[in-house]
């Protein structure tokens, strides 16, 4: 009967996962202690709800078929999600960054399962290897010790968690509706036609198995060559701009100090 109330595309299990995930996120987000009756219990409660949400989410997922695939996918996506959640809720920014590295590992795993080997490796190399390390430097530089007050409170955690929950519900419902029946207007009387006109789909996906890296390269430097050039420009402008901003800031700083 609950299912009847829910819109097509979502299930009670999924809805429960989203709801408990929302509450858990709210509980776990940094908040000033003593702000409500939950007190120190909120962390434990949040963890319990979070685990429940993850379990429900995993249970609500589709069965992938092979046990090996299934297990691998479950594990890497679990790592990604747990890492992501921990990034968001951990108070210390340094730990947060490290959790983010874990999430990246999970995402890389998901990408590998999805057959995007190059992207999986690139994610690790680009993010974990470059960006994250840079940010850790900055963190160490900027925050030598302890927790700053602004790390221990967050901005409107309840409203943000609700917003996130609503968005997640919307997204999962949309995803769930992908396997719904077509709208009444567009059911083609004869299924044979439908099959005949069916374009790429799961069947075409198998084509990916053959030499994906070469195909990706061909795509990138064939059709998307211009975009590659544009990306080069983007990197150039970011580099030059960043340096210019820094140097100008230094000049301004010097002028300010000289003036005072």
């Amino acid at each position: 009967m609950i299912a009847a109330l829910l819109p097509t595309g979502t299930t009670p299990l999924l809805a429960a996962a989203v709801a408990s995930g929302t509450v858990s996120l709210w509980l776990l987000l940094p908040q000033a202690p003593g702000s409500d009756w939950l007190g120190h219990r909120r962390g434990a409660l949040g963890l319990v709800l979070g685990v429940a949400a993850l379990a429900a989410l995993a249970w609500a997922g589709r069965r992938l078929g092979g046990l090996g695939d299934e297990a691998v996918f479950q594990i890497v996506s679990l790592v990604a999600i747990v890492g992501g959640a921990a990034t968001v809720v951990t108070r210390s920014p340094v730990y947060s960054a490290i959790w983010f590295a874990l999430a990246l590992a999970g995402v890389a795993g998901v990408l590998l399962v999805l057959g995007a080997q190059f992207l999986g490796v690139a994610t690790i190399v680009v993010y974990a290897g470059a960006i994250l390390v840079m940010f850790l430097f900055v963190l160490m530089l900027a925050q030598p010790s302890g927790l700053a007050p602004y790390d221990r409170v967050s901005n409107e955690p309840l409203l943000a968690a609700i917003a996130g929950g609503v968005l997640l519900a919307l997204l999962t419902t949309s995803i769930g509706r992908l396997s719904a029946d077509p709208p009444a207007c567009c059911t083609i009387p004869s299924r044979a036609d439908a099959v005949a006109t069916a374009p790429v789909g799961p069947a075409a996906a198998d084509a990916l198995a053959a030499d994906p890296l070469a195909r990706l390269g061909r795509e990138l430097f064939g059709r998307h060559l211009l975009a590659v050039e544009a990306a080069g420009l983007l990197l150039l402008v970011a580099l030059v701009g960043a340096i210019a901003v820094v140097s100008r800031g230094e000049v301004a700083e010097a002028t300010r100090k000289g003036a005072s």
């Binding site: 949309s174 509706r177 992908l178 719904a180 077509p182 709208p183 083609i188 374009p199």
Partner: peptide
């Protein structure tokens, strides 16, 4: 095509 229409109907609002 029904298959594509389903995807469209699900994703168009987003």
């Amino acid at each position: 095509d029904p298959g594509t229409v389903v995807i469209g109907a699900a994703l168009v609002p987003l």
